[in-house]
Design a protein around this nucleic acid. Structure first.
Length: 343
DNA sequence: ATGGTTTTTACTGCGTC
DNA sequence: GACGCGGTAAAAACCAT
């Protein structure tokens, strides 16, 4: 190894930028530490700004006070320097405990063993062919262990996350299992690098919920997921595309039972809402409209038709849809109904 | 980036309790 | 007067290009 030590991962300096002390800081510290008891000099340079009196350092209260007038010149004199001293760069290297930078991009924070690719020993000499073969085998196995370990940790965390979200959203077990299958595939196809585990986990669950016919809206997901909407939709699109998942657009009817039960409405309403939605689908006025809005409007309209009292805002609340949208949709739904009656 | 579509926000007027 | 409802214009969000 020649020259300055550099980090093999980042091929930069070892130090974290901004975290190490500058040379001047160290020099300053070293100087004061060198003569901590030489108070003649410090008395000469440190005079009370008020009365020019002598300053005393009160160790107990971490203050610097004037002996004559009692003025507190400097409070909170906490020593934030290192507890070791260094007088030259060699000593600094040997005493500094600042290590390689860690990174959250790798599951092991970049701390796992890394076997260099050069076929050289620690002194820079070439290895014999025998040694070279041996090193190659070591590399292979190290890599195998490292990636297997990495994937397992990754999976463990993701599955925990999927479980958490699924139970928060009241999704059945089958959906979780589908989600974990999707996640595993994503992992196997190396879709993870550059994306967060949370994001892919959320996307997997979202896709699974839709595939299993128990969709939850994006808003519901963002409420329980740790990733924001943008990342989630982006990751979702990506996962669906890469894994070629077949996810058909959510059917509004699938939201109906949930809204009905949350509003404490009867089966009658549910049936009516479903039939309204079917009628709307026939008339093809559903395309381009948000399924959630459609479902909410259908539930509202159905309640109206069956003389059950629900307000638009109540439906809007459970469905996370604005009243305006409910109004617009349910008008259209009823129009269809009438039109069919007259034709 | 852009343009078209959908949804939301904010505001208004009307009728009812 | 508060509430539910209906409507509108403008803003914002969304989506394909």
């Amino acid at each position: 190894m020649l020259g300055k030590p550099t980090c093999p991962l980042f091929s930069g300096a070892w130090e974290h930028p901004g975290e190490t002390m500058s040379d001047t800081t160290i020099k300053q510290y070293a100087r004061t530490e060198e003569r901590p008891t030489d108070n003649r000099e410090s008395e000469e340079t440190h005079r009370c700004p008020e009365c020019e009196g002598h300053l005393i350092t009160d160790e107990e209260h971490a203050e610097t006070v004037c002996r004559d007038c009692g003025l507190v010149v400097e409070a909170d004199a906490v020593d934030r320097g290192p507890e070791w001293r260094a007088f030259d760069s060699a000593e600094r290297d040997s005493k500094s405990r600042v290590g390689a930078p860690t990174t959250k991009m790798m599951h092991d924070k970049g701390l796992s063993t890394n076997i260099g690719w050069q076929n050289r020993d620690a002194y820079g000499k070439s290895l014999s062919s025998n040694q070279r073969r041996q090193m190659q085998r070591l590399r292979t196995w190290n890599e195998r262990f490292r990636t297997r370990d990495s994937k397992e940790r990754n999976l463990k965390q993701a599955l925990g996350e999927i479980d958490r979200m699924a139970s928060a959203l009241g999704l059945p077990k089958a959906v979780r299992e589908t989600a974990s299958v999707i996640y595993r595939r994503a992992l196997d196809e190396d879709l993870l690098p550059g994306r967060s585990i949370e994001g892919v986990a959320t996307a997997s669950l979202y896709a699974a919920a839709r595939q299993m016919g128990t969709p939850r809206s994006l808003d519901e997901f963002t409420a329980v997921s740790r990733v924001d909407k943008m990342e989630m939709t982006r990751t979702y699109r990506y996962v669906v595309r890469e894994l070629k998942l077949e996810v058909q657009p959510a059917d509004p009817e699938q939201y109906v039972p949930r809204f009905v039960s949350r509003l404490d409405l009867g089966d009658e309403v549910e049936r009516e809402a479903r039939s309204l939605l079917r009628g709307a689908k026939e008339a093809s006025i559903t395309s381009g409209k948000s399924p959630v809005g459609l479902a909410a409007a259908a539930v509202y309209a159905a309640a109206l038709l069956t003389n059950q009292k629900v307000t638009q805002s109540e439906v809007g609340n459970v469905a996370d849809i604005s009243e305006v949208t409910i109004r617009n949709r349910y008008k259209e739904l009823l129009d269809v109904d009438h039109g069919e009656l007259f034709e």
